[in-house]
Amino acid sequence: MTEEDASINTLASTPLVYLVDHEEKFLQEMVLGLSRLGLNVRGFDNAASLYRTFSVKPSDIVILDIGLEDEDGLSVTAHLRASQSVGIIIATARGSIDDRVAGLRTGADAYLVKPIDVRELAATVMALNSRLKRSRILSSPTGPAWALVEGDWVLTDGMGHRLRLTTAEQRFLGRLFLERGKTVDRRALVEALGGDVYDFNYAHLDTIVSRLRKRARKSGMVLPLHAVRGIGFAFTE
């Protein structure tokens, strides 16, 4: 074992990594190689299987190709970025400047072009994980965790930041707080809002989330509110 391999294996905490690629040979080689380097990694050959697993157990980092068969990788990147805290690495054969810029603008933290050495990929994963951990430490509350107070009408992050909620936001977050850390499906959220699940514009949920995030940012808060593609939302802290 090389010194580089040993340094990876001796890390105190190993990130959970999901790797998505439709090329079976690349997928198997990278999953095996990263695992041998001490990383906790699972492989998927399409976006749908990634979404299903991510909704149950979100990963720390996702590595994905752009040319997936069931959904464009840039679209996947955009949806994952909505979860805010996940690290995203694009690993693809598309190496033009336009492709790189599009990937980074869509939300990727790093962009690697195939062929990729497994050691480079592992080093990129660990560097990104370290950066994300530092960011979380800087933004983590020093007091109580996230809470709804004053009859659930005020959201607080335990750092002195407070946000008075609208009626829709109060009902929406109230439902999510009942199952903290779990994904609540869109139908249940519509019912919490008092809407008719058979006659409701489900895009309105995304509007509520978008406005809530913007208002929270203005109050100095970064919400751990995750959108799970095709399923619903989760409040994870």
Rank of each mutant, 00 (worst) to 15 (best):
M1V: 10
T2D: 14
E3Y: 12
E3G: 04
E4T: 14
I8L: 15
N9L: 15
T10F: 07
S13G: 01
S13C: 06
T14C: 13
Y18G: 06
V20C: 08
D21L: 00
H22K: 08
H22E: 10
Q28E: 14
M30R: 08
V31P: 00
L34F: 06
R36D: 15
L37W: 00
G38N: 04
R42Y: 08
F44S: 07
A47Q: 01
Y51I: 10
R52C: 03
T53Q: 13
L64R: 02
D65K: 02
I66P: 09
L68N: 07
E69N: 09
D70W: 08
D70Y: 07
D72E: 15
V76Y: 03
T77Q: 01
S83L: 04
Q84M: 10
S85I: 11
G87A: 07
R94V: 02
I97K: 12
D98R: 13
D99G: 09
L104F: 09
R105C: 05
R105M: 11
A108T: 05
V113M: 04
P115D: 05
P115S: 07
I116M: 11
I116W: 01
D117I: 04
V118R: 00
E120F: 10
E120R: 13
L121E: 05
L121S: 05
L121P: 03
L121F: 06
T124S: 13
T124W: 00
V125Q: 01
N129G: 04
K133V: 11
R136L: 13
L138W: 04
A145R: 14
V149C: 09
E150G: 09
W153Y: 04
V154C: 09
T156R: 11
D157M: 07
M159P: 00
L163E: 03
A168P: 15
A168K: 14
F172N: 06
L173P: 07
L173C: 07
G174A: 04
L176W: 07
E179H: 14
E179S: 12
R180C: 09
G181Q: 07
T183H: 01
T183C: 15
A188Y: 01
L189T: 07
L193I: 06
D196S: 05
D196A: 05
D196C: 03
Y198K: 12
F200R: 03
N201Y: 09
A203F: 02
A203M: 04
T207N: 05
I208G: 02
V209I: 02
S210W: 01
R211H: 12
K214M: 06
A216L: 02
R217M: 08
R217E: 15
S219W: 00
V222S: 12
L223W: 02
P224T: 05
L225I: 05
L225C: 07
H226N: 09
R229D: 00
I231K: 13
F235W: 14
T236R: 12
E237K: 11
